[in-house]
């Protein structure tokens, strides 16, 4: 496989009930490619957390997933409020989510930590008032 495969999704920021559709589509596509189940699980969880974050905090955004020969790249881009303090946001249990979001079972402060936990590399670019872009990589080779 020399040519990389790409998937693009617009994440709807208004509807919690449809959150996870982009992740589900990626999961299905990766299965069709015959990738290992643990790799697919890593990508699915990391992407779902990112998708939920975009719905909770940023009013939606865009997700691009590229399958390279040696890794999978997930790029999540939004034009939300940005992250004021990345170190704080990376702490397990820290969350700025509303009570409504928490009542749905989200807002546990585990989103970004889970994204880091399930990927081999993660980069956050954020600017308060402008938005956030997160790039994550899952290696396909040891």
């Amino acid at each position: 496989m020399n040519e990389s495969l790409t998937f693009h999704f617009d994440v709807d920021g208004t509807d919690f009930t449809s959150a996870g559709q982009a992740s589900a589509n990626v999961k299905r596509s990766l299965r069709q490619l015959g990738l290992a189940p643990d790799i697919i699980r890593q990508v699915s969880i990391a992407m779902y957390e990112g998708e939920i974050n975009m719905v909770i905090h940023a009013g939606g955004g865009e997700a691009d997933v590229t399958v390279f020969e040696d890794k999978i790249e997930i790029v999540l881009k939004d034009h939300g409020p940005g992250i004021k303090d990345i170190d704080l946001a990376m702490q397990e249990g820290y969350s700025t989510a509303t009570d409504t979001v928490r009542s749905l079972g989200f807002g546990a402060g585990m989103g970004l930590p889970n994204m880091k936990r399930y990927t081999d590399e993660m980069h956050i670019e954020t600017e308060v008032g402008k938005g956030t872009t997160i790039k994550m990589y899952v290696n396909l080779t040891d």
């Binding site: 919690f16 009930t17 992740s23 999961k27 699980r41 969880i45």
Partner: peptide
């Protein structure tokens, strides 16, 4: 004890 629609997405994506 959580029963909203998101549990289905979580269960599906996390196998």
């Amino acid at each position: 004890i959580m029963s909203n629609i998101n549990i289905v997405a979580v269960a599906s994506l996390a196998d």
